[in-house]
């Protein structure tokens, strides 16, 4: 049966590994979210007056884009402070 110390060391290593993984993928995740946001803006931007593909294409894609649509709406909350979001991402300041 593993001792308490061994269990603690295992948990600590697991935690350190996970922290490193989060750090390694954090920027990539941020970039992916930005790309997803751009994709949603490109497809659905026509509804807000942005240049977009012919609206029938957007309508054909719309039924499969609930996640992107919700993300697009939530991103409007961050739209006021994009630099702040990036700074916190990069742990600046």
């Amino acid at each position: 049966m593993p001792s308490k110390l061994e269990h603690w060391i295992r948990s600590a290593i697991k935690m350190i590994t996970q922290v490193n993984r989060e750090k390694a993928t954090g920027i990539l995740e941020f970039e992916t979210h930005e790309l997803e946001n751009i994709f949603a803006l490109l497809v659905l931007g026509g509804f807000a007056g942005l240049p977009s593909p012919p609206s029938p294409i957007a309508v054909e894609l719309l039924p499969y884009m609930e996640k992107e649509l919700l993300m697009l709406l939530s991103r409007t909350d961050l739209a006021q402070d994009p630099i702040g979001v990036l700074a916190s991402m990069l742990e600046v300041g």
């Binding site: 993984r21 989060e22 990539l28 790309l35 997803e36 994709f39 490109l42």
Partner: peptide
């Protein structure tokens, strides 16, 4: 749009491989 979607999917794949708990 297909190209952009492919990029997104490939980045998601990389993230999932590096950090399955993401």
């Amino acid at each position: 749009l297909s190209k952009l979607r492919e990029t997104i999917l490939s980045k998601r794949q990389t993230i999932t491989r590096l950090n399955p708990e993401s």
